Computed example of a mutant assay.
Amino acid sequence: MTDNTPHLIEADGLSMHYLVGQRQVPVLRDVTLRIRAGTRVAIAGPSGSGKTSLLLLLSGLERPAAGQIRIDGIDLGGLDSDGLADLRRERIGIVFQSFHLLPSLSALDNAALPLQACS
Rank of each mutant, 00 (worst) to 15 (best):
N4C: 14
A44P: 12
T2S: 15
E10H: 00
G67L: 03
S47M: 02
S59N: 07
L115T: 07
V41C: 05
T52Y: 10
A44G: 12
I92D: 08
K51I: 03
A117I: 10
S53Q: 09
A107G: 04
M1F: 12
R63I: 10
S53H: 06
M1N: 10
P46R: 13
R63Y: 01
P26Q: 10
V27H: 06
A65C: 10
L101M: 03
D30N: 09
L14M: 01
L101W: 01
R36K: 14
L58W: 01
L115Q: 12
A42V: 11
R40L: 13
V25C: 10
S49R: 04
L54Q: 00
G93Y: 05
L56K: 14
Q24C: 13
G77L: 07
V31L: 11
R23D: 15
R89C: 13
G93M: 04
A37I: 13
S53I: 01
D30I: 02
L102K: 03
A11K: 02
E62D: 15
L76N: 04
A112D: 11
M16W: 13
L115P: 08
G93C: 03
Q68W: 08
V20P: 05
I94M: 14
T52F: 12
G38K: 04
N110C: 00
A44E: 15
L101K: 00
S59Q: 09
L56M: 13
V25P: 04
G60K: 05
T2A: 11
I43M: 04
G48W: 06
I74K: 12
F99A: 07
D12I: 11
G83D: 02
L33M: 08
L14I: 07
P64Q: 09
Q68P: 11
D109C: 09
N110P: 00
T2K: 15
R34G: 12
L87Y: 00
L115W: 11
G83Y: 02
G93W: 05
T2G: 15
D80G: 05
D12T: 12
L55C: 05
S47N: 07
E10S: 00
H100Q: 14
L33H: 02
L113F: 10
G77D: 08
Q68H: 15
H7L: 13
G21I: 04
R36D: 00
L58C: 06
M16H: 14
R88Y: 04
S53K: 09
D75K: 09
A85T: 02
P46E: 14
S49M: 06
A37D: 06
P6A: 05
L101Y: 01
D12P: 11
D75A: 10
L61G: 10
A66L: 03
R89H: 09
E10F: 00
A65R: 11
S119W: 09
Q22G: 10
S53R: 06
I35Q: 02
G50E: 03
